[in-house]
Amino acid sequence: MGRMNCNEDLIAANNITFAYQPGKQVLNGVNFRLPKGSVAAIVGPNGVGKSTILKILCGYLQPASGEVLLEGRPIKSYDNLERSRLVAAVPQNIYAPIPFTVEQVVKMGRLARISRYSRLTREDKEVIARTMHDLNIAVFAGRAIGELSGGERQRVMIATALAQEPDLLLLDEPTSHLDIGNSARVIKALINWQRQKGSSILIVTHDVQMAARVCERIILLKNGNVLGDGNPHQVLTRESLFQAYGHGVSSFISPIDGLPVILPDLPDAEY
């Protein structure tokens, strides 16, 4: 990993602090770097500031102190379109009050790549068709977004972000509304896309099993600080998970893929 060389980092968070209200600090100096071509997850208990970090990383929120470097440059110094060609973020909550069709929504992903004075090019259309196919949403391309189920809508928003062709994809709980099958399909599509393009993905999730299986890198947050940062074996230990969540867990290595499996201790299991 290119930790020594700043220029190889795609994105770096340097000592980030943030508070929504004065005195109620959400983040107290978060540091991490993400090299190009990596897949990482941020995990941690509720209200620890995972989504806030994502909003800061994409430049939507300004940190109280510290800075975010995107390809070595402060993210503030990018203009909107330039930044959107590098970073795409899918927020957790999706509003869709206006009845756009699925295809129209995915087209919006090309916003930063086409001039306001021109139509979509053949290349744009190909990208849109491919992402819709990859995420298995082409079948309902003509339906209004408001009429879709939560899972379908989530896939549409991920497709829109992929149509941006970003170097860094930030996903906030991308599989929270998906069943096991769709969840697996979406993850597979994301990983395929990531390998093809050599882009990076940063996922905020509660699903530690998924994080352990998909990401080579896990960042564990606790009280606005980084508690653990490394590969799944290093971070998802019984001790650090107990420290983070305040609840006992059992952790063992899956015989199938050799990655850790985490089970929370439930009342029955304790005795």
Partner: peptide, 23 residues
Amino acid sequence: TLLGREVDAVTFGEETAFSLGAD
């Protein structure tokens, strides 16, 4: 009309619009 695509993005909420490249 010239801002039309950005306006489309804005209807999805500030975060999504920002991520798509609108202000």
